[in-house]
């Protein structure tokens, strides 16, 4: 335990916080510790987690992407028209089209960042505005409701009736989320290019010197983010059963907060899939718990903000030694 705390301090911290929050919540609310609620929680975080693991890869590579949520909306529209052109499509084609379109939007970011040596926050704030402006302009802000049936029909992967009569259900987005988590985990842990993304984010100049393919690193990182944005968009449309052009705007900052809370560093080289998922989960548990406790929804965000601020303050104060280590490294 002590060793895990040493090697993965942030993940351990989050886990402790989640357990503490769960204990408190289950003491106050009988519903909290039920399978129904647990599955609800999993279903509700799935889209954010899909975005989050994509963003994680970009953060590890030393970049940042502000544009992904808007890109997801763009993909929704493009995919809708592409699929009707293809005659309706099905889930397989849907995933390929949405993922592919997402990768293309990600590649635009990567290309601008790599070939023109522009820092990622500038590029993605610019593309955020371009994507959003063009989307709203071309769609005139009109939502789409006549999605193909396969897209909007709920798919329940696992269900069980509880003693209380309510149903515990696990839906498609949850399964896709587990897929996204495993794929990202495999990418950054077991593939050569994944480790190169870590190395590049950690020390770009050192990475260049040992011959890491910088172009590949950038395109794969932003392409991965784009793919996850596309798939997240597909899932969000499935979940909502409609496509609204500005439905996802603002989501980028919430996801960013959760991922960074999970230990990914702005600046690169740090972050784990586990931490990232725990970050999203913690934020969701707080909201879910407040909901069960009967707190007015208007106060949710205020309380989440306070907790986030406290978590940042506390985690940074107690990990000060780490920072001294970083300072030493810069004096190397």
């Amino acid at each position: 335990m002590a060793r895990i705390f040493k090697t993965h301090p942030i993940e351990t911290w989050l886990l402790v916080l989640i357990i503490v929050a769960s204990v408190i919540l289950s003491a106050f609310s009988e519903q909290y510790l039920t399978l129904v609620n647990a599955f609800d929680l999993v279903n509700s975080i799935s889209i954010n987690v899909i975005f989050a693991v994509g963003l994680l890869v970009v953060l590890i590579s030393g970049g940042i992407d502000i544009s992904f949520a808007v890109a997801a909306s763009v993909v929704q529209y493009l995919a809708f028209y592409a699929l009707s052109y293809l005659g309706g499509g099905n889930w397989l084609i849907g995933f390929i089209v949405a993922g592919g379109l997402g990768i293309m939007l990600g590649a635009i970011n990567a290309g601008l960042i790599h070939y023109f040596r522009v820092i990622s926050i500038v590029v993605t704030i610019a593309t955020f505005n371009v994507f959003f402006g063009l989307l709203m302009f071309l769609t005139k802000g009109v939502s789409l409701y006549d999605l193909p049936d396969w897209w909007t029909n709920r798919i329940i992967v696992f269900e069980r009736e509880m003693a209380s009569g309510s149903w515990a259900e696990l839906t498609l987005p949850a399964v896709v989320m587990f897929g996204a988590i495993s794929a990202t985990w495999f990418l950054i842990t077991y593939t050569s290019i994944g480790r190169q993304i870590y190395a590049f984010g950690d020390n770009p100049e050192g990475a260049r010197r040992i011959g890491i393919n910088v172009v590949a690193v950038q395109f794969i990182a932003y392409g991965w983010m784009g793919m996850m944005a596309g798939i997240g968009g597909l899932m969000q449309a499935h979940f909502m059963q409609e496509i609204v052009p500005n439905a996802l705007i603002g989501r980028e900052l919430d996801v960013l907060a959760a991922v960074v809370l999970g230990g990914a560093a702005l600046g690169g080289g740090r972050g784990t899939v586990l931490g990232c998922v725990l970050g999203v989960l913690l934020m969701a548990i707080i909201q879910n718990g407040l909901n069960l406790l009967g707190v007015t929804p208007f106060a949710f965000k205020a309380i989440v903000g306070v907790i986030l601020l406290l978590a940042i303050t506390l985690s940074n104060v107690s990990f000060n030694e780490l920072r001294v280590g970083l300072r030493m490294e810069s004096t190397q």
Binding site: Y198, A199, R209, G269, Q332
Partner: peptide, 8 residues
């Protein structure tokens, strides 16, 4: 300088 990857 710049040789190592401190987080790895």
């Amino acid at each position: 300088d710049h040789a190592l990857f401190p987080e790895m």
